[in-house]
């Protein structure tokens, strides 16, 4: 398979997710502008951190004059979920050189991970899977930077009657549905959602980590004595 074709396939697989990325970027850009950050600070943060949810919370806490150490800790708790993406991807990049590993992990986001997982069966060869990943991940990163700049310069320009920010949870949901392939996965997703609501008040956004952690443990225990075939829906 030609590299170019595979790369473009990855790019195209990312396109339907972008309506969920752009509003997020616009919100981030608008928040940065409201907080008084200039374009260098905003883009510096965008490039160095490259994690929307954590950046949004960081800007919010900065404006509230929260202690710097607490801000960094809160941001890292939000991002700790990426340990899981790293773990899920590590077998794929096992034989890659350090540069590929560095760039690939730098671009690890909810969207780039989810698009790769949702299209897992598309290619058999390791190399094709990696090129596909980069096609999606690079598209995602460019779109993120672009939409944050748009938000910074123009503010959230969509009419307020259309709640564009609702596209963010919708895009996460649309990415999850294809990964719910069996009954345990369905139970895990419901459990995690309910727990995240119950744990919402916990400090430093720990609720997210706790809810997902319990969900994963529950799924693992649930499938302990089942072979793969026996729990297909």
């Amino acid at each position: 398979m030609k590299k170019r074709t595979v790369f473009l396939t990855g790019l195209k697989a990312m396109l339907p997710i972008l309506p969920g990325v752009i509003p997020f970027g616009l919100i981030m850009g608008t928040a940065a502008s409201n907080a008084g950050l200039n374009i260098f600070e905003t883009m510096g943060m965008n490039i160095i951190v490259l994690a929307g949810a954590a950046q949004l919370v960081t800007v919010d806490l900065l404006t509230k004059n929260v202690d710097s150490l607490v801000i960094v800790f809160t941001g890292l708790v939000i991002n700790i979920r990426m340990v899981l993406y790293s773990a899920a991807f590590s077998p794929l990049f096992e034989q890659s050189n350090i540069l590929t590993k560095t760039v690939a992990s730098y671009m690890l986001t909810d969207q780039s991970y989810a698009v790769s997982i949702a299209n897992e069966g598309l290619y058999n060869k390791r190399n094709d899977k990696i090129v596909f990943y980069f096609g999606g991940a690079i598209t995602m990163v460019l779109c993120w930077h672009f939409s944050v700049v748009l938000g910074l310069v123009f503010g959230n320009f969509a009419p307020s009657s259309i709640s564009l920010d609702f596209a963010v949870p919708l895009s996460f949901m649309a990415l999850t549905i294809p990964t719910i392939k069996n009954r345990p996965a369905l139970l895990v997703s419901i459990l995690s959602a309910v727990l995240s609501i119950l744990f919402y008040g916990l400090p430093y956004n720990l609720g997210l980590v706790l809810a997902a952690g319990i969900g994963i443990a529950f799924g693992t225990i649930l499938t302990e004595n089942l072979t793969r075939r026996s729990y297909e829906i």
Binding site: A53, R81, L84, Y85, A87, A88, S90, P91, D110, Y113, A114, I117, V168, P169, F172, M173, L175, T176, T179, I180, P184, A185, L186, V188, S189, I190, S192, A193, V194, L195, S196, I197, Y200, G207, L208, A211, A212, G213, G215, I216, A217, G219, T220, T223
Partner: peptide, 26 residues
């Protein structure tokens, strides 16, 4: 990575994304 750990990896997306979006919506 053990077989058991690999199995828990398969539950990552269906655990993390619902936990991420549920409070936003609810």
């Amino acid at each position: 990575i053990s077989e058991r750990a690999k199995r828990s990896l398969t539950f990552i997306p269906c655990a993390i994304f619902p936990a991420l979006l549920a409070p936003m919506v609810f």
